[in-house]
Design a binder for these strands. Structure first.
Length: 644
RNA sequence: GCUGGCGUAGCUCAGCUGGUAGAGCAUCUGAUUUGUAAUCAGAGGGUCGGGGGUUCGAUCCCCUCCGCCAGCUCCA
């Protein structure tokens, strides 16, 4: 048989005899490349380095530099985990073991749950196997044979039944392990140099809560120990910034058992921050042509029946309260209330757009295991607005919503974000409401708006809400995490259900377009994100206490009072630390409370009308006249500076 | 809701195989008058998450409820 022609990415060609593998080609190019190789790309698809060519091909050798290689590497580590578990606990049944963003997991079915101690044993076993340098080998099997072979492994058998082709691939790892798997994998366990098991958790088979719950072991894996250590350090950093921890340390908020889970109490210090957020948002509403409305927290069930929430959202609503005149329910969304405000009277096209905004508090029944600090709660306040407009106006409205969102992100110190347009499936499934023309119009408006603003947006098909397409802004925080925040979404359903209309230029009735938008998302969640973003060290304008004034002895108490009073008269939030304590302690406490500025007032300062300024981050800033400091801090507050 | 772990003073935690609880910080009182991350001393404070059971006796063992944590499912 003649040899195959292998084309490399640079266009050069090599010939390969039948039976030769990508690894051989890599070796021929350079031993170092062969050593660095993780996986190959052959004719555009990922291949094992040790899988022989079956014809002419294009070949790319992937190394640690390629993100796809990392996925393969982690997938192989998952197999290593499965083998370790089987060697230690042979009765275990295997589910699936894919790579994920930060590592991998493997799902197991085992009568006895794993314990944290088992995790250590399993990891030790993994290293032991790694040292054996076992090869990952691809084996082809016929489906009917496979079903017999995996007959006593219920999950694998189910997967083969559903997914396998007539001939499918399996991967062995040493003599005792074989797994139904598409692959590819690294050549051998020796390639796996940095991994660590992290946690055990329950997970439903195929993500279906009606199916059996399995035990999932999570792990992380990187090409080098260094990268892995950096990743583990990031996890530690995230823990350090946890808003629940900082919220307690800085006395910002609490959730109280007596009142119930998912219900947030803002303490004085959290309250002042919330007020600052709310004031900014309300002011922005008015500046941008929104009207402020206020609507009730409860309404008759009839309203929720008309809106449809009583049907499709019932699971998430607090149960019905029966009063003597009718049944009532807490509002889970503001939309129906804003619609009632719109629908109170006929509208001319001249009145449009109507932008009705509210900081609207809603209550949703979240299942007990799903609450998380401020991020997921049962009662929360949305910065919610609904825009009612004509088709001609829609594009401008979307553009200004997105500008508003950008301004919000920037104001609160988020430089980076990602945008995502979610569209429907073209009507294929029938699960989406609204006419195709409406979807078309809306999607075009979203696309043109992001284009106009030069925002890069990815489009995801079949991810829209059933009532309309949307665009979401996800922010990137100080340590690179992504948070879903602002959302701008169309709603084709509610205007129809409530029979909304306006009188057009032609004197006829038309249905207005309705856009729902929230920029903070929820004030509680946004507050939580802010806490983590700044790690509690809020910029001056948001800090609950902006300045701590600390007299050195009680001889300077009068002067310190005067300093505090002058700053307060400018609206600065001041804490006068008049405790009979040493400055060292006062500074320590102020630092721990992350108060931006500390003003030490001793005898010299009192005499000269100065203050000794200390910044929480830049430490001692030297002595300044009080007036100078006042101007400085007033400037920082007025400009909502993010750096101080 | 599910799986697993956990629940001891306001906070962080100790308490050997069951014999009715202890430290540091915080709080209060007193002393000290202090110069850029913890001055010293004394005092008060807990029905050991709630309820039930086993036992002569339960913070410890069992049951049940509540809550928290990590995931799953869902989601602003």
């Amino acid at each position: 048989m003649s040899s195959f022609s292998i084309t490399l990415p640079d266009g050069s060609q090599k010939s390969a005899a039948p039976g030769e593998r990508p690894l051989d080609v890599a070796l021929a190019i350079s031993p170092r490349l062969a050593d660095a190789a993780i996986v190959a790309r052959v004719n555009g698809a990922l291949w094992d380095l040790t899988r022989p060519f079956d014809g002419d091909a294009t070949l790319e050798i992937l190394t640690a530099k390629n993100p796809e290689a990392l996925e393969v590497y982690r997938h192989s580590t998952a197999h290593l985990l499965a083998l370790a578990v089987l060697e230690l606990y042979p009765e275990t049944q295997l589910g699936i073991g894919p790579p994920i963003d930060t590592g991998f997991y493997y799902d197991f079915d085992r009568p006895v749950p794993f314990t944290p101690g088992d995790l250590e044993k399993i990891e030790a076993k993994m290293w032991e196997i790694q040292a054996r340098d076992l090869p990952f080998e691809r084996v082809l099997t016929r489906k009917d044979e496979g079903l017999v072979k995996y007959g006593d492994m219920w999950m694998k058998a189910e997967l083969i039944q559903e997914r396998a082709d007539e001939i499918f691939s399996e991967y062995t790892l040493g003599p005792g392990f074989i797994d139904f798997c598409r692959g590819p994998h690294v050549p051998s366990t020796k390639k796996l140099k940095a991994f660590k098991l992290l946690s055990i958790a329950g997970a439903y088979w195929k993500g279906d809560e009606k199916r059996k719950q399995l035990q999932r072991i999570y792990g992380t894996a990187f090409f080098t120990k260094k990268e892995q250590d950096e990743h583990l350090a990031r996890i530690e950093e995230a823990k350090r910034r946890d808003h629940r921890k900082i919220g307690a340390e800085l006395d910002l908020f609490s959730i109280q058992e007596l009142a119930g889970p998912g219900l947030v109490f803002f303490h004085p210090k959290g309250g002042i921050i919330r007020k600052t957020l709310e004031d900014w948002m309300r002011e922005a509403y008015l500046q941008r042509g929104y009207s402020l409305v206020y609507t009730p927290h409860v309404a008759r069930v009839d309203l929720w029946k008309t809106s449809g929430h009583f049907g499709f959202y019932k699971e998430n609503m607090f149960t019905v309260m029966a009063l003597d005149d009718a049944e009532y329910q807490l509002k889970p969304m503001n939309c129906p209330c804003h619609i009632l405000v719109y629908a109170r009277k006929p509208h001319s096209y001249r009145d449009l757009p109507q932008r009705l905004g509210e900081l609207g508090t809603v209550y949703r029944y979240e299942r007990s295991g799903t609450m998380h600090g401020l991020m997921r709660v049962r009662g929360f306040t949305q910065d919610d607005a609904h825009i009612f407009c004509t088709p001609e106006q829609i594009e401008d409205e979307i553009v200004s919503c997105l500008e508003f969102a950008q301004d919000t992100l920037k104001t609160f110190g988020f430089e980076k974000y990602k945008a995502e347009i979610s569209t429907w499936d073209g009507g294929a499934s029938g699960k989406y409401d609204g006419a195709p023309e409406q979807w078309q119009l809306a999607e075009n408006a979203l696309r043109r708006a992001v284009e106009k603003l030069g925002i890069e947006a990815t489009v995801v098909t079949d991810e829209a809400a059933f009532y309309g397409p949307k665009i979401d802004m996800k922010l990137v925080d100080a340590i690179g995490r992504l948070w879903q925040l602002s959302t701008v979404q169309f709603d084709f359903t509610l205007p129809r259900r409530f029979e909304l209309e306006y009188i057009g230029e032609d004197g006829k009735k038309h249905q207005p377009l309705m856009v729902h938008r929230a920029l903070f998302g929820s004030i509680e969640r946004f507050f939580g994100i802010l806490i983590e973003h700044y790690a509690g060290a809020f910029p001056v304008w948001l800090s609950p206490v902006q300045v701590a004034v600390m007299p050195i002895t009680d001889k300077q108490l009068d002067y310190a009072r005067q300093v505090a009073k002058e700053l307060e008269s400018d609206g600065v939030r001041v804490y006068l630390d008049d405790r009979n304590e040493k400055v060292n302690l006062k500074i320590r406490d102020a630092q721990l409370q992350k108060i931006p500025y500390m003003l030490v007032c001793g005898g010299r300062e009192a005499e000269q009308g100065t203050v000794s300024v200390r910044h929480r981050k830049h430490a001692d800033q030297g002595v300044k006249p009080l007036a100078e400091f006042r101007d400085q801090i007033k400037q920082l507050i007025a400009t909502r500076a993010n750096n101080d």
